[in-house]
Each structure stands twice: as C-alpha cells, then as structure tokens.
C-alpha cells in the first residue's frame, strides 16, 4: 500500500526532518515498502495485556531519595553553545 503524501509529511513533522522534493519522493517509496512488510503483523490476532509482561520490579527496589552533589556545569555544557551557564536556543516561536 502506497503511503500518502500527507501521511509522510505528518511523519516528517513529528520527526522534525526535512526532505527536498526528490528526497521525499524517494523516502515515500521506501516507506511504502517498509510499511507493507510491517502490515504482515496485522494478521496476527492476539491482543496485548500489559499486566502479563514480566518486567515489573518491586516497590522496594526503587531508588532511595538521597540527593547527591550535581555535576560541574561547564562539563555538562562542554558540547553545547552556551552563555552564562545556559544552553543557547534560537527564539521559540509560539
């Protein structure tokens, strides 16, 4: 099933990815094939029950509430454009 243009555009919006026209065309084709492969799972007819997962832990295995010294600010920011100990972000448009 070919994926629709507006679906791929929506996915690009959710993913914060830009494609030029040719790129979008190409990825649409690829995504269509991939989704065909994914669609095979639709014929599997069991339903998911999250209470049956066996990955839960006991309450007592959570972390005790003890504050520890934080990290040096400059080390945290060593990979970022920063000023006055803050990350620099272009203006957010609302």
């Amino acid at each position: 099933m070919a994926i629709e243009l507006k679906t791929i555009q929506h996915l690009c919006e959710l993913s914060k990815l830009n494609y030029d026209e040719a790129g979008l065309e190409k990825v649409m084709g690829e995504m269509s094939d991939i989704i065909d492969l994914m669609d095979e799972i639709k014929s599997f007819d069991l339903t998911y029950d999250d209470t049956k997962d066996n990955n839960s832990i006991k309450f007592c295995d959570t972390r005790e509430d003890v504050a520890q010294p934080s990290f040096p600010t400059e080390k945290l920011l060593q990979n970022a454009e920063n000023t006055d100990g803050c990350y620099v972000v272009p203006k957010v448009v609302e």
């Binding site: 972390r63 934080s70 600010t73 945290l76």
Partner: peptide
C-alpha cells in the same frame, strides 16, 4: 540524584541524566 530544591544558579543542579545526555537512564525515586 540531583537536588530537587527550588532555584540555584543555572544548570548547577543538573547531571548527565536530567540534562538528557545520550546513554543516560532514569531511576525512579522511591
């Protein structure tokens, strides 16, 4: 395990986990 106290100089109550560094993981406070 960073302090949850209000305020502080910017990014002084932070660590790789709450700063969202790649590879870090959350561990729930009891």
């Amino acid at each position: 395990t960073c302090s949850a106290e209000f305020g502080g100089t910017p990014n002084s109550r932070c660590c790789p986990v709450c700063s969202g560094l790649p590879g870090t993981l959350p561990v729930l406070n009891k």
